[in-house]
Amino acid sequence: MLRLEGLRVRVEDREIIKGANLEVQGRQVHLIIGPNGSGKSTLALAVAGHPAYEVVGGKIFFEGRDITSLPPDERARRGIFLAFQNPVEIEGLNMVDYLAKLIEKRTGEKPLTPLREHVVEFVTEKLGPYLEALGFNEGFLDREINVGFSGGEKKKFEILQMFALRPKLAILDEPDSGVDVDSLNIIGRLLDRALQEGITLLLITHTGGLYRHLKVDRVHVMYDGRIVASGGGDLFERIQESGFEVVIR
C-alpha cells in the first residue's frame, strides 16, 4: 500500500531523513519506533506532503503510484491520513462545522441547512458511535479546533477525524503520548476497530500501551533518518526490554 524508496527529506537546509526504505501492506498494522529526534515525525509529515518538508531524493509510492510530488490535499483524497503528533489550533473554526465539511468531502452529503442544529444532527448521525466511544458530547462539538484542548482531547479528536474521513492508510504519530490510561484504552480499542473497518495502520509509538491492543504485523526501527531494522512483534518486545542498542551499531 505504502512504499518508500530511498527517501531523503530536508527541513530548513538540514537533511533529516537520509534514505529511508519502508513497505506497508494493506490491512496490516505496522509500527515505527525510534529514539527522539530520529526523524519519525519528519517521515510522517513528508509522506503527508508538508511543503516545508522537502523531498530531495527517493520516492513515495501509494497503491503503486508515485505520489512524491502531489500536494497534501490530493494525497488525502487518495486515502492517506495523518494524525498529528502536535495537532494545530485553528481559532474560530467550530468542530462540528469542520467535521460536517470533512464528511461532505467524503460522501457528498450535506446537513439540511447550515443551522447549528442541523449540522449537529448530521454529524451525530454520521459519527455517533465514535463520538460516544471517545466521550465527545454535544457541548464539546461547539469548541474551536484544538483550542484549549488537553493533550488527550487533541489525540482523540485526531482519531475522530480519521473516522470522519475513512482513509485507506492512517499514519498515527504518537497517538499515545500525553494521554491518560483511560483515554489510551479508548484509543487502542478504536484503532483496532479502524483495522476491522479496513484501515491500514502505520503507528509511530514509544509505548507498549497501544501495542497490547493491536495485533502488530511488523515493527520498523528508525534511527538517524533511516529504517535500521524491521521485524515481527518480537522486535518490539526485545527493544522494550533492552533498549535500541539491540538494533543500532
Partner: peptide, 20 residues
C-alpha cells in the same frame, strides 16, 4: 497544511481559516 492534509483544497482551507 493541517486542513489540506484532511483533503480540503487550499481555497477551502484558507476560507476556513479566514472565517475562523
Amino acid at each position: 497544511f493541517y486542513l489540506m492534509s484532511r483533503g480540503l483544497s487550499e481555497e477551502e482551507a484558507i476560507t476556513m481559516i479566514v472565517l475562523g
